[in-house]
Structures are given as structure tokens and as C-alpha cells.
């Protein structure tokens, strides 16, 4: 028990320590940004520090937090819906080749329609509000999750299925004990992608449908040609995405995929 706790603590420590590498990457991006600022001037591209200050100002004056919360709530709701729908449909299709054959062309059609078109349709059907944003996210991000789940089911190790069957597992327990973990390995990258899509589409839908939130604030910044504020809103939205991704999805994944950590060579691990 103590050993398990220590192991968890060690992994948490490694995870936090790896934050320095992430910070170094961000610092590199900020340096490029700064170079752009110095080349083109403050009106076209405000300095990164200036943007950070603007973001901090937005956060402290109160109203920004509510708008950010609206967007995050919409994005996370949409993400939860698409994760649920995509996983259930994908697993079902993975186990049923006939369904999969029918679903593939439908998927291509849905992926081919740009999200903007869905926003327009959703605005006509549902008006401007939470519904429009959620539906747009659902339609644009579900196929990603669906494909991940299908991949997980069809590429699972059938040898393990036979092994479980030899030891007396019926179809249900072969799924819950053996297949789920293999599906999860393919599902998590798809979920990360879907979460990013959910945030992007949420902001876009808000901007086009004028439904408040970060998108609404961006629309106002554009009307006032306030580049610093626009960039501040963008960085706030990205920060929110990073917070959700690293606070929610990645820890869940790390917990399920501990064995991959054991397999990774030393240089990759740290």
C-alpha cells in the first residue's frame, strides 16, 4: 500500500517536473512572438508581456471570468456529449462490420461539411444560445471520437480474446476485462483531439452566432480593432483548454497507461 502511494507520488513528481520542458517550449513561442512584435509594431502584434497584462486585467475585473466560464462550460458540455455519443457508436460499429461499412461514407460526408455550415444551420434551427454551440461541437467532434473507438475495437488483440475465453470469460467479460483497455489506448488521443476541437468550435460558434462568451468578446474586440484584447482573449481560451486537458484527460490516461511508462526508454521518460 505504501509502495503504491510512493509510486503515485513519484509519477506525480515526474509529471510536474516535465512542466519545465513545456514552459521552455512556450518561452520559445513567446520569443518568436516578441520578434514579430518588434518587426511590425504594437498595433499589428502587441508584445507578449503586454498581452499577458491585458489578460490579467480582464481576469481581475470580474466580467471576463463569467464569459470564460460560459465558454468553458459550453465546450466541456459539448465535449462530454460527443465523447459519450462517439464512444458508444464507435464501439458498437467496431463490433458490427455491417454497421461500420454503412457508417464510413456517412462519416466522410459529416467530416467534409465545414463546421461553419453547421453553425449557420444550427442558428436557424435553435436560435443563438447554448444549444447552437453544443450541437455544432457535437457534429464536428463526434466523428473523431467515433473513429478512435472503432480503431480500438478492430485493432484489438484477438489472441487475448481467445485467452480470456479459454479461461471461461463470456462475451460481456471479454469486453469489460480485455477489450476496454485496448479501446481506451486508441480512444484517448481521439478524445484529446476532440477536446481541442470542442474549444475551437465553441469560440467560433459564439463569435458567429453572437452568443456571448469568449467568442462574443472577440467579436467586440474585432469591432474596436483592439488587437491586444483579442489576443488576450485567445490566450485565455487556450489557457482554459490546457487547464482542462492537463487537469482531466491526461491524468486519467496516465492512470490507465502506466505500463507504457514502464516500456518507455529512459530518455523519453524524463
Amino acid at each position: 500500500m505504501l509502495w503504491v502511494g510512493l509510486d503515485r507520488l513519484a509519477r506525480l513528481g515526474r509529471f510536474l517536473w516535465s512542466g519545465w520542458a513545456g514552459l521552455a517550449g512556450l518561452a520559445l513561442l513567446a520569443a518568436l512572438w516578441q520578434a514579430g512584435h518588434e518587426a511590425y509594431g504594437a498595433f499589428i502584434l502587441p508584445a507578449p508581456l503586454e498581452t499577458l497584462a491585458a489578460a490579467a486585467r480582464l481576469l481581475t475585473d470580474g466580467s471576463a471570468r463569467a464569459m470564460l466560464a460560459t465558454t468553458v462550460e459550453r465546450a466541456v458540455t459539448g465535449f462530454a456529449l460527443c465523447a459519450l455519443a462517439g464512444t458508444v457508436a464507435g464501439v458498437a460499429a467496431g463490433y458490427s462490420p455491417a454497421t461500420l461499412r454503412i457508417a464510413r461514407p456517412i462519416l466522410t460526408v459529416i467530416l467534409g461539411v465545414p463546421p461553419i455550415a453547421w453553425i449557420v444551420l444550427a442558428m436557424i434551427w435553435f436560435g443563438t444560445g447554448d444549444g447552437t454551440v453544443a450541437i455544432t461541437i457535437l457534429i464536428s467532434a463526434t466523428p473523431i471520437v467515433f473513429v478512435g473507438a472503432v480503431e480500438g475495437v478492430v485493432t484489438r488483440d484477438r489472441g487475448l480474446d481467445a485467452m480470456a475465453k479459454a479461461f471461461g470469460a463470456g462475451p460481456v467479460r471479454r469486453f469489460t476485462h480485455v477489450a476496454v483497455r485496448q479501446i481506451a489506448a486508441h480512444l484517448f488521443p481521439a478524445l484529446l483531439l476532440a477536446l481541442g476541437t470542442a474549444f475551437k468550435v465553441a469560440v467560433m460558434a459564439e463569435l458567429l452566432a453572437n452568443a456571448g462568451g469568449v467568442g462574443g468578446a472577440l467579436a467586440r474586440a474585432r469591432a474596436m480593432l483592439d488587437v491586444a484584447e483579442a489576443l488576450a482573449w485567445v490566450s485565455l481560451a487556450v489557457a482554459a483548454l490546457i487547464l482542462v486537458e492537463y487537469g482531466l484527460i491526461r491524468p486519467a490516461r496516465a492512470e490507465l497507461e502506466r505500463w507504457r511508462d514502464a516500456a518507455a526508454p529512459w530518455g523519453v521518460k524524463r
Partner: peptide
């Protein structure tokens, strides 16, 4: 009760050796 040993070990990569050995007990 029967058990089976296959040509390839067919271990679950996400479970430790103990987890793999205990798998039939979990099923039982």
C-alpha cells in the same frame, strides 16, 4: 477446470505479472 498455455504468452500488456497470473481468479 481447464487452463491453457498458448504458443505466444498472450499476456495483457497493461497488467503486471501478478495481475496477469491472477486474471483467471478474477474471472472465477
Amino acid at each position: 477446470r481447464h487452463a491453457m498455455v498458448f504458443q505466444d504468452p498472450r499476456l495483457m500488456p497493461w497488467a503486471t505479472a501478478a495481475g496477469n497470473i491472477g486474471f483467471p481468479l478474477r474471472l472465477a
